[in-house]
């Protein structure tokens, strides 16, 4: 029993990692694009769970909030609306395969560099140490972001703002001849503008 308790984090980690890899494969292997999107959602949720094992609760919750709660909802929305034929998407597979393999190898090399880092004598935290997060890791992150890394943080914010403005400018098109409701005009309307009271006798004059 004690053994189970000691190994519990490891069991959780390996279980979640296995599920993460399986659902990542699901993203690229699922035949239905909606299923692919849902596998990607699962990937995000499991990564958040793995981050929780590292006591990185702010990052984990932010990942679920931003990616699962907002980005993926919109992606799902788009994928459902598009008429995607799986067969047509598979047409270019052989043509793009070399490029895909290259990107895959680059990513694998990046991940493998962790081994090199471990042996290079860089100061690493083997396990997250609780005192490090004594004041709560949301506060710790906030203090770092708004003091030491303020400029980087602000610049990242401006880049995102630019991206938003750019996306809106690219997709905004004004169509003429639309009957759009003018709420302010509706609210400001007075009875005199709309109703004409006509005074007349109740009987026809003889």
């Amino acid at each position: 029993m004690q053994l189970l308790v000691d190994w519990f984090p490891f069991i959780l980690f390996s279980g979640w990692s296995g599920m993460l890899i399986a659902s990542a494969l699901g993203v690229i292997l699922a035949r239905n694009p909606v299923h692919s999107v849902l596998f990607l959602v699962l990937c995000f949720v499991i990564s958040a769970a793995i981050w929780l094992l590292l006591h990185a609760e702010f990052l984990a919750v932010a990942l679920v909030l931003v990616y699962v709660g907002a980005v993926m909802v919109l992606l799902l929305f788009v994928v459902m609306m598009l008429d995607i034929k799986a067969e047509r998407m598979r047409e270019g597979l052989v043509r793009y395969a070399p490029f895909g393999v290259l990107v895959g190898l680059l990513l694998a090399a990046q991940l493998a560099s962790v081994w090199w880092l471990r042996d290079s004598g860089m100061e690493l935290l083997a396990q997250p140490q609780t005192p490090y997060f004594s004041e709560g890791n949301t506060r710790a992150l906030g203090e770092l972001l708004y003091t030491e890394h303020l400029y980087a943080f602000e610049i990242a914010g401006y880049i995102l703002l630019l991206a938003i403005v750019g996306a809106i400018t690219l997709t905004l098109r004004r169509r003429g001849g639309l009957r759009v409701q003018q709420v302010s005009e509706q609210v400001a309307v007075r009875p005199e503008d709309r109703v004409r009271l006509v005074k007349m006798k109740a009987e026809r004059p003889e």
């Binding site: 919750v61 932010a62 909030l65 699962v68 709660g69 907002a70 709560g136 506060r139």
Partner: peptide
Amino acid sequence: DAGLLYLLSMTS
């Protein structure tokens, strides 16, 4: 500690 964020993410 991140309770408010957790709530937002669950409701979303």
